[in-house]
Design a protein around this nucleic acid. Structure first.
Lengths: 232, 232
DNA sequence: GGATGTGAAGTAGTTCACAGCC
DNA sequence: GGCTGTGAACTACTTCACATCC
């Protein structure tokens, strides 16, 4: 496997969540023609301290140059490698409402190495058609095996969708529905819940942290609800 | 202000991010007619330890009953109060592609107390129309004041959208575009980046944590990219 | 008996501060 | 001179374990 990875895969969770952010920044810099940067600048843009940036990046191996900083191109590539984008990921999406369709059509959603191979919806007027040349199938007739399953159904249908994904031997689920899912141990579920994001912002507005209460808003390490074992 | 809040607003960031999850679980329980629960069950469903649940909830005041657990209804209400949902939030959305429209149409997106008051898009065929009885306006003619601004534009337009929101004196931004935003100190930006979520899942698949490498996947405390100060 | 709420202990993550290198 | 990479100090969060109360 790649050299950056076998160094040690003890990247901490917060670090893992920040690496894609640094990568985004690096991509933006490349787009603008910036070829060099440093931990101070990266920290400003990512909203973390320079020390944290250096600590995070040092986990990928020594990719900076003392005295001058980081090469943006190298940064981009090394983070890609550390996150495992040399692998290939097959993605299926269940639920083709506005959100599901937005994901299919979005160029932003897919990471390098990921490909949407199947779409699922129970709406008979959709089943049998294609979207972006990807076939739309009925999830009740079984789901094809894939690496990652994405749930975009309404809340009521989310658990059934999860069951279908689990039945297809899919062990990683990205859940956009506002339901807590019941899945077997060993299945990773990551929740993206829009209203929770709103709630967190709202909390900061109401309480001291935010601009209404004054002070530099610097809420580092916000945690998102994660992953799960089977409830007893 | 509310009794639960002035106890002390020293809820930690991880706690704040978990409270909405407990609330979701409580709502689901109510829907199913469950009126009592305990930290063990809540922990299973939320993917955290019972001790963490108790520690989190104790921050809202003593709302459990020793020996029997928590009243689900009380839980739901108290979390609502702690998160500041007795306040009113005006929300504007900039960018009405599939994602923007999904948010407008979704019953899941809005939290109690929040209301979408304005929609913005530069597409001339949309400006002047209404969506869900909310008028669609041109952001280049200025944005109305609101509590929270939501950016759903393509990446290229995100910074302009942010500038317009800042110009409207909006200090809290939920950014769904994959761009790092440049905003003044004192403006809270929360990033929801779909591809970052995919990347984090992908990392766990590639590395030991996930089912491919075996072991109980229990990635607690995943942090999402947060908030930002003005780059120098 | 049983589950909360919480000091105390343990663990993880961040920041400091500086040696090392360009 | 300047910025990285990192041991050491610090801070924050989690978990343990139990006294407390229903």
């Amino acid at each position: 496997m790649s050299s950056a990875l076998n160094r040690q895969n003890q990247l901490s969770e917060p670090t893992i969540a920040r690496l894609p952010v640094y990568q985004r920044i690096a991509q933006e810099m490349l787009r603008r023609g910036t070829t060099k940067t440093d931990s101070k600048r990266l920290g400003e843009l990512a909203g973390v301290t320079p020390a944290t940036v250096r600590r995070d990046l040092s986990g990928l191996g020594p990719l900076g140059t003392r005295g001058s900083g980081y090469d943006v191109q190298t940064l981009e590539v090394q983070i890609d490698e550390a996150l495992g984008h040399n692998r290939h990921y097959d993605v299926v999406i269940v639920g083709l409402g506005n959100l599901g369709r937005a994901l299919v059509g979005s160029t932003n959603f897919l990471i390098r190495g990921a490909q949407i191979i199947g779409l699922y919806d129970i709406d008979p007027s959709l089943v049998g058609t294609t979207l972006n040349n990807i076939p739309v199938l009925d999830p009740r007739e079984g789901i094809m095996n894939a690496t990652i399953g994405v749930i975009c159904t309404p809340a009521e249908a989310a658990q059934a969708a999860a069951d279908a994904l689990v039945g297809a031997n899919i062990h990683a689920i990205l859940n956009f529905s506002p339901r807590v899912l019941d899945v077997p141990v060993g299945t990773a579920v990551r929740y993206v819940d829009f209203s929770i994001e709103l709630q967190i912002l709202a909390y900061h507005l109401t309480n001291g942290t935010g601009p209404l209460g004054g002070g530099l808003l610097r809420t580092l390490g916000l945690t998102t609800p994660p992953v799960v074992a089977r409830p007893s």
